[in-house]
Design a protein around this nucleic acid. Structure first.
Lengths: 221, 221
DNA sequence: TAGTCTATTGAACATGTGTTCAGCAATCAG
DNA sequence: CTGATTGCTGAACACATGTTCAATAGACTA
């Protein structure tokens, strides 16, 4: 019968952990279509053992998700000092050792599914906190709907990174140093320009939209 | 030996065209991992005929790409009257009959590859034209780098749509009426707010970035 | 009607991939 | 040394999927 695994009471250097780390690396590098055999090779074990430990490929991915979520949570509570639009994404990016986790997270966002959605929500919540703090300081303009603004800014920034990765290197590996460098040289200037100076010279579009929603607020909500 | 197909001189109601249309619909609805058999079912032909006409699944996808590109090009030259940030994407969205092509385009952008990249470049070029026109009219603020600004705005808007689709409905079908409705209720207000009023109250970030790039412009370019 | 040509079928094939399982080897108790 | 427990292997299995091909049906010509 299948016995439980924790052979030395919780230490995390077992074959199970090695497989999980190899899976995170492979999923991050090649996407979630990577084969169990490739993961097994990376972990230097047999394909059978992968299934033996995690029940199925889906179970393995779930374990990877859980591990990454735990790691993100730990990192977040550890250092709440950084003030940044990107939240923990940039924080992770600054540390070379966390590159595989970053790749995994980007794949999760690219693929969709529960992990990607929950990470996105987390980033939105972070962005809202940072924006509120900036608003309190006076460096960020107030918004008619801070929650939606945080979501929009996050979706735009993250979406642009995702498009860079998806369109630039379809099917290839992800090199984060390069992706972030490219993002900066390509988008930093227009982003700062837009954030500080805006895009439109007139208020007509915004005002007419606000009027339009006011008129229709009687039948909704 | 395999003969050419155009049996009646170019009319497009042959089985080949039916297969191609079914493939566009299936690819758009379920992504490019959809099976040849599913496409054959949709077109009410045998799987063998699909391969017979297009050589392989990759060939079929190439034919779909070409057809969509041609359609987009035709639509573009047909009506150059609309002035909009989204370019032909919104234009397509307004027409119910083009829903499958829109879905296909979004899948192409989501998956990456040559079609997605070329469509993206096209949208960037469109956006740049529209922005330049607005700048000439005086409704759009001038930019230090109009090309990069157009790219950034396009990537942000498109990326946010893509994230909505990817995170909201992973693996499910795409309903564009719903996606665009959701985009509008979720992002229209903060987008207009950002575009007309900006985000930051101070110029320090932008100015320091500009100074930073000036300092380093001696070794590059 | 007979003949030919071509579009079409559907069963079979090849391959890739998740999963299973009987057995091996290493460790440890006695 | 012996026996047993257990992590682990790798060959085999089942299934999905792209692809092939011999056979068929339908249409057009003479």
């Amino acid at each position: 019968m299948c016995s439980a695994i924790r052979r030395d009471g919780g230490s995390d250097l077992t074959a199970r952990a090695r497989i999980r780390d190899a899976a995170i690396a492979c999923f991050g590098r090649h996407g979630f279509d990577v084969t169990v055999r490739a993961i097994a090779d990376q972990a230097e074990v047999s394909p059978g053992l992968v299934i033996h430990h995690f029940g199925s490929k889906a179970g393995l991915q779930r374990a990877c998700d859980d591990h990454v979520v735990g790691l993100v949570g730990a990192l977040k509570t550890e250092s709440v000092t950084a003030h940044d639009d990107q939240g923990f994404l940039r924080q992770l990016a600054s540390m070379e050792e966390y590159a595989p986790y970053l790749a995994y997270i980007l794949r999760a966002l690219q693929t969709g599914g529960p992990l990607g959605a929950s990470l996105f929500e987390r980033m939105v919540a972070d962005a809202e906190l940072y924006l509120a703090a900036g608003e309190a300081e006076g460096t960020i303009r107030p918004s008619r709907d801070p929650a939606r603004r945080a979501r929009w800014l996050t979706a735009g920034a993250l979406g642009s990174i995702l498009m860079l990765v998806t369109l630039g290197r379809a099917g290839q590996e992800i090199d984060f140093a390069e992706v972030f460098r490219e993002w900066e040289t390509e988008y930093m200037l227009p982003a700062l320009e837009l954030y500080t100076e805006g895009l439109l010279t007139e208020r007509t579009l915004l005002d007419s939209y606000l009027r339009h929603t006011e008129e229709h607020s009687e039948e909704a909500d």
